[in-house]
Amino acid sequence: MSEELLKVLKAAGLDILSCMHCGTCTGSCPSGRHTGLNTRRIIRDARKNRATVLSDDALWLCTTCYTCQERCPRGIPITDAILELRRLAVREGFMLPEHRLVSKMVLECGHAVPLDEETKKKREELGLDPIPETVQKYPEALEGLKILLKTCKFDELVAEK
């Protein structure tokens, strides 16, 4: 996989080779100010085909705010490249348990954040139908959504390896 990193990024239209390591990305990063995320290092590691970039937990500290991408003087799609690296990491089995749980919610209910009893009451207080007009109200729509997720093999991808 490591040897393929640059090629995969380039195939996805994400060329990071023009990076001159100016550090604007790291300096602009709202997460990096408070966490271990060093965007420039991630781009450097990806450029050097270091497989460790995929197992690096820092990859998951990016809030995808796109500030680095907007400010990059070389116009490198940095955030999009981080998203691609994350997808490669997931395929290698690197996924946080909390993210597997969010995926399970969508697989089961069609929502990352499903309805709960407290919110049903709040909806009634407001004069809204306790069950919103989403996939939660229509069993046949939920069934279709589940077929779609299975077609994409999403259940297999996020299953505990």
Binding site: L83, V90, H111, T134
Partner: peptide
């Protein structure tokens, strides 16, 4: 009617 999770870009776009 019948709409689902968008799906959330930060997570699902990061997965697949």
């Amino acid at each position: 009617p019948g709409a689902s999770c968008c799906p959330a870009p930060g997570v699902f776009k990061s997965f697949d």
